[in-house]
């Protein structure tokens, strides 16, 4: 979906594919990847954590068993690292996240296809 101003710089190399290194993908393969990326960068820019703290967690996640060899699930690990860091920093607790995730799930299921999904105030835990 999203491309980058790098078309002329990237010559797809069939040899790379043939020998098992993964193919190119767009910068972000889905909007959620972009959102997960931006949240981490923004929190770091605001000085809410050191990049090293995030890199350490990301590295742990990437080294964990079950990581895709082709890097395809990279941003899933990024997201998990960010969830862990925001919990460790006390920004968002795990139960709070779980509750909010359930609220989004309910909101999605109650929203007809093609319409924007919004959280009701009540679903936000009365905030």
């Amino acid at each position: 979906m999203l491309t980058f101003g790098m078309i002329t710089l990237t010559r797809p190399d069939p040899a790379v594919l043939r020998n098992g290194l993964p193919a190119e993908r767009p910068v972000f393969a889905a909007p959620w990847e972009a959102q997960a990326f931006a949240m981490a960068v923004e929190l770091n820019q605001r000085g809410l954590f050191q990049w090293q703290e995030f890199a350490d967690l990301l590295s742990e996640e990437l080294l964990a068993a079950g990581t895709a060899q082709d890097g395809e699930d990279y941003y899933r690990h990024w997201l998990r690292a960010l969830e862990r860091l925001t919990a460790a920093k006390g920004f968002i607790t795990e139960p709070e996240r779980a509750q909010r995730q359930a609220a989004w799930d309910a909101a999605a299921k109650a929203t007809p296809h093609g319409e924007p999904i919004a959280l009701e105030k009540a679903a936000r835990g009365g905030r």
């Binding site: 929190l43 997201l79 969830e83 925001t86 968002i92 996240r97 799930d105 999605a108």
Partner: peptide
């Protein structure tokens, strides 16, 4: 995954 991203972002 999309739910997790939305949960995290809306809380932040």
């Amino acid at each position: 995954t999309e739910l997790r991203v939305r949960a995290l972002e809306s809380l932040l």
